[in-house]
Design a protein around this nucleic acid. Sequence first.
DNA 1: TGCTAAGTTCGAGAAAACTCGTACAAGGAG
DNA 2: CTCCTTGTACGAGTTTTCTCGAACTTAGCA
Lengths: 125, 125
Amino acid sequence: MRQAVSPGPFVDVPEPPDLPDPLPEPDVADLRLDRVMAALSDPLRLEIVRRLLLERQEFDHPCGWFGFDRPKSSLTHHFRALREAGLIRQRQYGLERRSHVRVDDIEVRFPGLLALVASWTPPDD
Amino acid sequence: MRQAVSPGPFVDVPEPPDLPDPLPEPDVADLRLDRVMAALSDPLRLEIVRRLLLERQEFDHPCGWFGFDRPKSSLTHHFRALREAGLIRQRQYGLERRSHVRVDDIEVRFPGLLALVASWTPPDD
DNA sequence: TGCTAAGTTCGAGAAAACTCGTACAAGGAG
DNA sequence: CTCCTTGTACGAGTTTTCTCGAACTTAGCA
């Protein structure tokens, strides 16, 4: 069923059971294109989603895995923006809060969008 | 050649020669995904692009054709945001300034993006 | 019992975007 | 010329977003 829903290049990695509950996030039916676009209008957030897509075979990545040179409170802000727009799902593992892209959900509602993000390259200026 | 570049459902309507020069706009190579996303993060602008796509067989549409109940200065603001992001091209015809989506350019740089906008429906709240 | 590490919450300052009124420019019809 | 229409430019007020420091929370470990 999962593959039938998302025939594109992005397929969710199957997850082991008994995971911690996801943090609050919008339901698939409540995803809004304008909100998603706004979340993806920031270069740092584009980079977060891009790298989550490229290295998605690894398990969910904690906030510090990206190596951004920003204060932790700034990162919290941007990850929350992505989660509240519905682009990523976050779960708490002990101290870490790990994230992954909601590939199936986004692909169903906005097919092809993640491919654009995956092929994005950060501006070099 | 044009069809080879853009095999998707969006193909530019051929334009008659001797058109007025377009207003200043970014070159195709300078289109930035984050800028385009920011331009499409506003519901009114999404609606503008959507309706330009749906009724693109008609000729370019002037600002007032949409019938938005907003001050003219607000509309100027939003149309300029779309043009500066590279989503629309604007030409001056006498008094009117007519707009159309840069379908080929966007489709080449961000394939599939316009399909998402075309199938968007404005929020009903 | 502390100590460290990951990340949050709060709040404030700065920057950007949105909205709109007003004044202005310029084409077209009479 | 005069009036009407389409739309711009400017500027101010408001709202949103971004950014970051400081204090706090919690898990794991020695």
